[in-house]
């Protein structure tokens, strides 16, 4: 399941990334495999999204969120 498929309020644990370049940026920002992510809200026009990860809030576009694969619950 991709991060971009979660609804606000849902959470998941990062498993892996589908895009290496993006993964480098995301990991620097604390999105590491094994970290849990909560989707807080979507922007009014549906994109970008706001998530909580590593104890802070981060916003990213759905395009970026779709490169994050979550563990199966």
């Amino acid at each position: 399941m991709k991060l971009s498929q979660l609804e606000p309020g849902q959470s998941g644990i990062i498993k892996e990334f589908t895009d290496l370049e993006m993964s480098v940026k995301l990991m620097e920002m604390g999105c590491l495999p094994g970290e849990s992510i909560v989707v807080e809200r979507y922007a009014p026009f549906g994109d970008p999204i706001a998530i909580t990860v590593s104890g802070y809030q981060l916003s990213l576009r759905k395009k970026e969120a779709s490169t994050i694969i979550l563990q199966k619950p």
């Binding site: 993006m22 920002m29 802070y56 981060l58 916003s59 990213l60 970026e64």
Partner: peptide, 8 residues
């Protein structure tokens, strides 16, 4: 790309 912190 757009990866931005939302500060408190």
């Amino acid at each position: 790309y757009f990866i931005m912190e939302l500060p408190v």
